[in-house]
Design a protein around this nucleic acid. Structure first.
Length: 217
DNA sequence: CACCAGGCAAGTA
DNA sequence: TACTTGCATGGT
């Protein structure tokens, strides 16, 4: 089976169907990083409400969020769920940025990519998907983001197996696709859109843009 | 009413 | 190592 060809076919079909999605929704790298933490196991809709509130109350900066009491931050992000846990995670990330890079995301992204990824994974509350989302969408780095939708869709197309590790899936994608941030950006956005709008129904149903690929299996 | 969403860490065996 | 559980809100 030609993995490279399948990965490309899925991308081309989805890209034709949805067009450019221009991810990540967010105006600055900082806002994107905050969103990446808040959206853990949470619908983006609920995160949007939280980010709007943070902006409305003028708390969208590392200094403001770090100096605020936990209960204040928790109240701001309440709509995104797990607000107590996420307050700790958000602050852990902001302290990390502060301590290691003087609070500068620009400086942070000057660090060697895989060193930075390893460091991010040491921060409490940042796992592989969150780290990679920050690297790709806030930093424009060429890392493929793997999430629950990626797993479901690729598994249905016989590209991966259920028990594959995050890194194994990521390495496969990065091996068979050009290491291009723009491509990875759009690809992950397409997979999430497909999952949200089609894959909740039956896998590869008629309406799903990927439905037409059933015959290619 | 139940179920799920763009995860992660900590606990258990 | 491999599973399980807690975390929590808002939409369908």
């Amino acid at each position: 089976m030609d993995i490279s060809k399948n990965l490309w076919n899925i991308y081309l079909v989805l890209d034709r169907h949805f067009g450019s999605l221009n991810w990540w929704p967010g105006e600055t790298p900082f806002e994107i990083a905050v969103g990446a933490i808040l959206t853990q196991n949470t619908s983006w809709k609920n995160v949007e409400i939280a980010i709007k509130k943070i902006k409305a109350k003028k708390y969208l900066s590392a200094e403001k969020l770090l100096q605020a009491e936990d209960y204040i931050v928790a109240e701001l992000i309440k709509s995104s769920g797990y607000h107590n846990v996420k307050t700790k995670r958000l602050k852990a990330f902001l302290r990390f940025m502060d301590n290691e890079y003087g609070g500068s995301m620009v400086k942070m992204f000057e660090e060697d990519l895989w060193i930075l990824r390893a460091k991010l994974l040491e921060v409490n509350g940042i796992g592989e998907e969150t780290a990679d989302s920050i690297l790709l969408y806030a930093g424009g780095k060429p890392v493929f983001v793997v999430d629950a939708y990626t797993r479901r869709i690729f598994e249905r197309h016989g590209i991966i197996e259920r028990d594959w590790s995050y890194r194994k899936i990521q390495e496969l994608c990065m091996m068979f696709l050009p290491q291009n941030p723009g491509l990875y950006n759009q690809y992950h956005a397409l997979l999430v859109n497909t999952g949200k709008y089609y894959c909740k129904k039956k896998p590869l149903c008629e309406e799903c843009p990927l439905g037409e690929m059933r015959k290619l299996q």
